[in-house]
Write a protein that binds this DNA or RNA. Structure first.
Lengths: 216, 216
DNA sequence: CGAGGGGTTGACGCCGATCAAAGCTGGTGG
DNA sequence: CCACCAGCTTTGATCGGCGTCAACCCCTCG
């Protein structure tokens, strides 16, 4: 969590409350309060940061799971969020007023480091995204996405909650038909197989071979 | 600069010196000192952050110009840089020991904000990159790149220093031949024309039409 | 049972990768 | 001052991957 490392009494004097929310899939996080006043810390589930190009085409620029923070850009004093943020699964978040974070940063300098590490983590994620989702044939990109899903919200078994086709297409930058064909082929070769409704298991070793990762 | 907002006397007690370097094109910044000890602040010129995939394929994940900082990830206590950083032009930088930044952060909390803003700026840049360089036909991506070059290191006239084909290809994710054909076509239509050796001028209005930016 | 939304599958055309070869250009040495 | 060479750029020909359009399937829900 964003506040790990802070003592419990740190929160005794916060002027505004830290609330806990649960969003259903497809819900826009920002609507839970007036725009640009809250930072969210994700406890469970998956959210997508989307970019809407002039023309209406959507592209997903990041997936964030448990432990990640949303809205840190508000600390720079700007009014709005950079991207619309939408729940993919059912999502469990802490909603923290920006003023509370600023206040706590002043009282506990270690929080500065926490915030910086979150930002750095997102930057690393974005760089990885540029390489994984922006390069190579469609098949490699889809496989990269599946493996990344396992890392972000893997449940230990290596099972992932499969996204909808349009989300995956908006991530890897292809048409939904192409994604459908690729995943169908992966299923035929038993590199991906269903274990429950929307829950799929990955053969990570075999998938890693496809993207040419000789380190397995 | 990274230290704007700090008083001059802040640097009187720094244990290690802040040096000034000039790198020729193609030079790896990290080699100027032992690995993982320095943060660079760019004063002039352009650097590229590159990612080398297993297999040797290079992809450029970011271009940084004057005002940007390189190596902020070292503040997280890790040993190495995330990406190799290579000078594109002749580059003018300040080399700042990580320990100096940490020391100054402790003495001047406002520096925490400066660092956070730099990170946020790079995150915004990365997100924009994902959209601009990862979506749409090759022509749009190249035009986006040219316009972005003008923003990062524009000299006011709207002139840009043209990159080499292989760099542009590594940015937009196409072959060098495709980039060459696209730029040749732009020249034919007088949307781009040479004003000096490697210096080109852009017709921004007309180029904006290509990428469908109705706000032009 | 019918409607609708997502997923699947096929046919076809085009964009862009690839291979190949021919200009250009700047640097080097005679 | 010129010839030469290496690396970069340009251009052409060909081919495959993937976008697009269209039809169909399947599951859910009213």
């Amino acid at each position: 969590m964003l506040f790990s490392g802070l003592p419990d009494e740190a929160f005794d004097r916060t002027l505004q409350p830290i609330d806990h929310f649960i969003f259903p899939p497809g819900c826009l996080l920002h609507e839970s309060g007036r725009s640009g006043e809250f930072i969210f810390s994700i406890r469970r589930g998956l959210v997508k940061l989307i970019n809407i190009a002039p023309g209406g085409v959507q592209r997903i620029v990041r997936l964030l799971g448990p432990g990640s923070s949303v809205g840190l850009e508000l600390l720079d004093g700007e009014k709005g969020y950079r991207h619309p943020v939408v729940a993919v699964n059912e999502v469990d978040v802490c909603r923290i007023p920006v003023t509370t974070v600023k206040q706590l940063q002043a009282d506990y300098p270690v929080l500065h480091d926490q915030v910086r590490e979150r930002l750095q983590e997102q930057l690393d994620r974005a760089d990885d995204w540029i390489v994984s989702m922006g390069t190579g044939p469609a098949k490699e990109r889809v496989v990269n996405l599946l493996l990344m899903l396992g890392e972000i919200c893997g449940d230990g078994n290596g099972d992932i909650e499969m996204l909808h086709l349009d989300d995956m297409a908006a991530i890897v930058g292809t048409s939904i038909e192409t994604v459908s064909r690729i995943i169908a082929e992966l299923k035929r070769h038993h590199l991906v197989y269903k274990v429950a409704n929307h829950l799929y298991r990955l053969d990570r070793g075999a998938l890693s071979v496809i993207i040419g990762d000789t380190a397995g």
